[in-house]
Amino acid sequence: MSHANPVDLVFGGMEKLGPGSDSDTLQVLGMLPKVPHGLIVDAGCGRGRHTLALANRLRNPVHAVDSYEPFLSSLIEGAEGAGIGPLIQTYCMDMADIADRFQGIDLLWSEGAAYNIGFPYALKTWHSALKPGGFVVVSELSWLQEKVPADVRRFFKTGYSDMRSADENRVVAEDAGYRILATHTLPRATWIEGYYDRLEPRARSLLDHPDQAVRDFASETLEEIRIFGSSEDSYGYVFYVMEKV
């Protein structure tokens, strides 16, 4: 019996693979002091909701990097459907290797993906790939308050033990050789609309799936959604808009 891929079952066909929205993506893009042209790389693009938003707005090729081939295939399909196929180039590779493949990057964009290799490591390793004065925009899960409900703190101890406060992340960015130009916190609604509101019923329907791995992934997903509901806005995704110094 072939094992079902839990990620495909839970996330299959979903446009959003994380919190966010096109309007937030474009609002943050507008925080850059000038419009980027030239080499634009989207690191950890997933299905590429934001990749398409960037390419559409900038009318500039976007080089989309992800290590999961099915996501890239669905991005190409989406780009063709949106009539911007020629603007999207995909690379199935690890985002830690970006500096080996690309040099002189004008804008490196990464929504909700840098944690896969660690925020500090991502910023350090990408630094050499950017042209002088190049821009980096990374959204990173961050603590937003000192006061965090106990079960929320407990969840992230295993879920993302390296999570830092927004102020700590500013220091990380400066240490890695960037100047922070602006920040933007994703509104609560962008976690729910088209993401948790679709994910919850799907995960619930998989709780009695014959495959143990699928059941486990489904219940982890539901626990994450429950934690968000009791978070009292103690954490969120913060976009850090940075310039290479």
Rank of each mutant, 00 (worst) to 15 (best):
V241D: 00
G177D: 09
Y237G: 00
A218I: 05
Y115H: 13
M14H: 06
I227V: 14
L75T: 04
R59Y: 09
D216V: 14
D162T: 10
D66H: 04
P201Q: 07
V62K: 06
L32G: 00
M93P: 01
F228Q: 01
I180L: 15
E15H: 06
G194Q: 05
K124Y: 12
S205M: 11
G236K: 00
P210C: 11
I180T: 11
A79K: 02
N116V: 14
W109T: 08
A64V: 07
E224Y: 08
A99G: 09
G20T: 02
I76C: 14
E15P: 02
N56K: 14
D175P: 00
V172I: 15
Y240V: 02
A182G: 07
L222D: 01
L186V: 09
A96T: 07
H3F: 15
S128A: 15
E224F: 08
L141V: 07
A189K: 05
L207N: 08
F228D: 01
W143L: 06
P61G: 11
S23Y: 08
G159D: 12
F155P: 01
S234V: 00
P132D: 15
E111I: 03
P19S: 10
E200L: 10
Y68L: 11
D24I: 06
P187A: 08
D208E: 15
E223V: 06
E77T: 12
A150E: 15
A82Q: 11
G78K: 11
E243S: 07
E200P: 01
T125L: 13
L107M: 13
L75G: 02
S165V: 01
R101L: 13
L108E: 05
T183N: 04
I180Y: 04
Y160S: 11
V137R: 01
S231I: 00
T185F: 07
I192T: 12
F135I: 04
S230R: 13
K34H: 14
L52V: 14
A64E: 06
I98D: 03
S21G: 08
L72C: 06
Y160R: 06
T125S: 15
I192D: 07
S230G: 09
A82T: 08
L52A: 07
G46V: 06
I76E: 15
Q89P: 05
D94L: 09
T185P: 03
E193L: 07
D175E: 15
P33G: 08
H184S: 13
T221L: 03
F11Y: 15
E80N: 12
S230H: 11
L181A: 07
G20E: 02
R179C: 11
N116D: 13
G30E: 14
A79G: 10
E224M: 10
